[in-house]
């Protein structure tokens, strides 16, 4: 069943998708005969990049909505589970090994990132197996902190200045110079993650009333936890594997769309996926258009530059209206 909100978002997404294919340093006018190389730019550069933006944004947006529902907190972010930093650690490790001359091939980075995400997921599942959301969050934060420390260690021990800059630039997150092979990594993972969130949706609704009440409504907390780990692991792990660390989407998108829904967590997941895809597509197109000496603006930086002041303004408004007991 599609709500009106979902239809509007889908329409906007379709328009933005078409526009993002035409926009860039070289503009493609659909109404004049194509120039030499236009097909190459369209099919091999812009189409996979646009697909990736939608997939990564959809994954991060839906993961944010699911996390906020699971932790019953509008300020929760997919990064809280420690899966994004662990995936980033895996990716950094592959860059590091690459700098030592190991011939790892193009698949190594996404593979290492997914292994990092998988490791964090397994650790989370083992540690938090019998605890509630609080233990789970603490475990996630510790995993994030450990991964962050190891990542800093890897950076400080980088074998060469070149490797150092490669790692740092990669960590900023971007969709530039991506190809279809990244799309084939992100597509199944994003779909699997969305599937997990779909399975978890009724339980997340019940969780609105607290853990005890959710249990009394027939929710199996262990199953819900596993679905969340699986969903966040697939979406966030997949997005880090193909695009690096991209913040704010998972936090801001569900936050912005919640007032337009009936506030049930289950009615926010699909809009957040569509909205996340839309936001990332627009931000990435903007990154391509803004002229910058020495390349283009990194997507991760752009989102934080836009997102943080925007969110601060939102908090400012909330402060003036009075923050009502965690209700956003």
């Amino acid at each position: 069943m599609m709500s009106r909100l979902n239809l509007w978002l889908l329409l906007a997404l379709a328009l933005a998708f078409a526009a993002s294919l035409l926009a860039g340093r070289v503009w493609i006018d659909p109404f004049v005969p194509p120039f030499a190389g236009a097909e190459l730019i369209l099919i091999d550069l812009r189409l996979p990049r646009a697909c990736l933006a939608v997939l990564v944004g959809a994954g991060l947006g839906s993961a944010g909505a699911a996390m906020q529902a699971y932790l019953r907190n509008p300020l929760a972010d997919p990064g809280l589970f420690g899966i994004a930093p662990s995936a980033a650690l895996g990716a950094v490790l592959s860059l590091w090994l690459g700098a030592y001359g190991l011939k790892l091939g193009a698949w190594a980075l996404p593979l290492f990132a997914l292994l990092g995400a998988g490791g964090a997921m397994a650790l989370l599942g083992l540690i938090a197996a019998r605890g509630g959301a609080a233990l789970f969050t603490l475990a996630g934060m510790m995993i994030a902190s450990l991964s962050g420390a190891l990542m800093s260690l890897a950076i400080s021990l980088a074998p060469s200045p070149f490797a150092l800059s490669e790692i740092v630039v990669w960590l900023m997150g971007a969709l530039a110079d991506r190809s279809w092979s990244e799309v084939w990594v992100a597509l199944p993972l994003t779909l699997a993650g969305l599937g997990a969130f779909w399975l978890a949706a009724p339980a997340l609704d019940a969780l609105t009333l607290g853990e005890a009440t959710a249990r009394s409504l027939g929710v199996d907390p262990r199953r819900l936890q596993m679905l969340l780990i699986l969903g966040v692991g697939c979406t966030v792990g997949g997005s880090v594997a193909v695009a690096g660390v991209i913040g704010f989407v998972g936090l801001v998108v569900p936050h912005l769309l919640r007032p337009l829904t009936d506030k049930r967590p289950s009615s926010l997941i699909l809009p957040s996926a569509l909205g996340g895809g839309l936001l990332l597509l627009l931000a990435d197109s903007l990154c391509r258009l803004i002229p910058l000496a020495g390349g283009e603006l990194r997507l991760g930086i752009a989102l934080s530059l836009l997102g943080a002041p925007f969110f601060l303004a939102l908090l400012w408004r909330m402060r003036r209206e009075g923050f009502r007991g965690g209700w956003a």
Partner: peptide, 22 residues
Amino acid sequence: ARERARSLGYLAQGGGAAWDLE
């Protein structure tokens, strides 16, 4: 669990809601 939930209705003490539902 779902069958049990249909038989036993439980109201927690002072339970609130995380989201501002109607």
